[in-house]
Design a protein around this nucleic acid. Structure first.
Lengths: 347, 347
DNA sequence: CTGTTAGCGCCTTCAT
DNA sequence: ATGAAGGCGCTAACAG
């Protein structure tokens, strides 16, 4: 099969221990032998068998990545960040995505067991119990956008609450009052945070009951398309729509365009995530930019550091990464129609 | 550290061989022992050490994926297909992306050596020599969208030539004659094929010299944006633009919108790839749909089959996957302006 | 049917 | 400074 350390030893006329020593630079070796070992290794194209290495309790060099089914550009940006950091720290990425249920998730973790040195987990739908079971697996873990108790693990969450708050305030500042929200998956922590941010902003303005303005949705354009149908039937009609995310917003724009409703003049629309294509929708989309590539990069870097850290004495870091409101053409001041006037005089 | 086969054997009161036999179901074992082994294994939460297994020449269960730096949605769709098939065949994915130079590429391959059972390679920029070196690595390989000599490996290429041909013919059929092409990266085989398809269609119509209609570009929206600047300065101005791909087309639409040029009436625009967001551009984009998720799925399935196939006697398959012209609102008949009339009377 | 034994390739004491 | 030997966890002969 492959060429082994014995082959190198034979060719170099030394023992396998000497080869090992030279290649791992552990103990001093006479310069002549040293050179002939290196020469032999190169001539033979030798590289140590990773399986044998990790069998000795060494690191595998792998970083496992567990993601839910993530859509398009968000996913790509995240992965680019992860990959870049993995390269930089000399790791490779073992990726498992698209899990839906708890058991699929656990199966994925088991599949990675002892094949990787640590785990990147983005699991907004995971509950405390699930998080605990990951932590108890003994792996080094770095969470992204997941509900984890502070202090128990490294976490990089982006500010879903703050982003939704700022976005809603922006719309309120433009005079909108009937602001519809298309919610993300009900089990997802990030979606809940966005709802919370929305409600907080509305409450600040005295609008406590938003039930009739909240619509069920998902992080997909189809969901945005469908929800828009319901929104257009609402009476009185909302003057602004906040989509669960940018993909969802694309569906909203599409449905609105089909229905002949002009954006932003008849209805303002906003998304969340700040994926690149939001620059090219028509009109360009107001959104909340999440530095997802950077978050991926930092999550891996931090994990790599923890893997290096033999003693595990480094304190865990919990960080909420700020997000940025990006105002584009899809949101303008509300037209003062009759219903709005009524709302304004009341509020 | 972890719990081993010895622990299970001890707890079940049998030898380690018996445990191995039960767990791998290789030889018959008395039902009582069998049961106590299973019980012990479950109680201990035992799972075999993958490193020890692959050290014995067993498979690793990994499939390596080598991709160039791929943009947004295309990437995500591909990965979803790959991942789905990997799950289905019981493999996990080791992914390396964003390589640019030959040595980065080789380093990535080396990093995967003996960690995976086979390789998925999408490398449109790879030359014959590079392909040969991958093949000589002894790994099972399944290529996607790469220039590989038929018969030497499993290949799934999509029909870049045919897609570009059909797209150009569509535009010609609408009466366009000055059809600009924004080319992809010059070193990429798929980009060259698209150029070839474009030229073939133009030649059919008697337009042999397309040099003044071809513009340098990349598979990015920025490149599309920039190239559009040059196109708008061309005299006489093209009436249609074929972008290198959909991302590039997004940049074209953006530049055109900024310049106040109406699409499709002043200029028709088309893309390539058929990523989901092309449905939501304004106007929705005419493009060539590539079934990229499906291709990913099949590439992995085929690779998995080859990995199973002990003897390597299965013939390699070379397949050009058909693509589909998707006509949307961004392309309509050319206006008969003076330059067009001149061209028509000449041609 | 089942236990014992010999490695898979490598690193690491332990002697020398 | 260097070689010999043990063992990481597991599977596959080899004896019973």
């Amino acid at each position: 099969m492959g060429i082994t350390i014995h082959d190198v030893a034979r060719r170099a006329g030394v023992s396998i221990s000497t080869v090992s020593r030279v290649l791992n630079d552990t103990t001093a070796v006479h310069e002549d032998k040293r050179r002939s070992v290196i020469e032999a290794a190169e001539a033979l194209g030798y590289s140590p068998n990773p399986a044998a290495r990790s069998l000795l309790g060494k690191k595998t060099g792998g970083i496992g990545v567990l993601l839910p089914h993530v859509g398009g550009e968000f996913f790509a940006e995240l992965l680019n960040g992860l990959d870049e950091a993995a390269h930089a720290s000399g790791h490779f990425l073992v990726i498992s995505t698209s899990y839906r249920h708890r058991d699929e998730f656990n199966a994925a973790i088991r599949a990675m067991d002892r094949r990787v040195d640590g785990l990147i987990v983005m699991a907004p739908e995971l509950d405390a119990e699930g998080v605990a079971s990951i932590l108890s697996s003994g792996n080094a873990v770095s969470f992204i956008n997941t509900l984890v108790e502070e202090g128990s693990a490294d976490v990089l969450n982006f500010d879903n609450f703050g982003g939704a708050l700022a976005l809603t305030q922006h719309l309120l500042g433009l005079g909108h009052r009937r602001i519809a929200l298309i919610k993300g998956p009900s089990g997802a922590w990030d979606a809940q945070e966005r709802v919370r941010g929305y409600r907080a902003a509305m409450a600040e303005e005295g609008i406590e009951d938003t039930a009739s303005l909240e619509f069920e949705g998902e992080y997909t354009s189809i969901a945005g398309y469908d929800a828009t149908g319901a929104i257009l039937e609402a009476v009185p009609q909302p003057t602004a729509i906040i989509a669960a995310n940018d993909d969802c917003a694309a569906g909203v724009l599409s449905a609105l365009s089909e229905a002949g409703v002009s954006v932003p003049h008849a209805v303002a629309v906003a998304g969340f995530d700040g994926i690149p294509s939001t620059q090219y929708t028509l009109p360009p989309l107001t959104t909340v930019r999440v530095p997802i590539g950077e978050i991926g990069y930092r999550a891996v870097s931090r994990l790599a550091a923890r893997i290096e850290d033999q003693e595990g004495e480094v304190a865990t870091q919990y960080e909420t990464v700020p997000v940025e409101l990006v105002v584009r053409k899809s949101t303008v001041a509300a037209l003062p129609d009759s219903a709005d006037l009524g709302a304004a005089s009341t509020g």
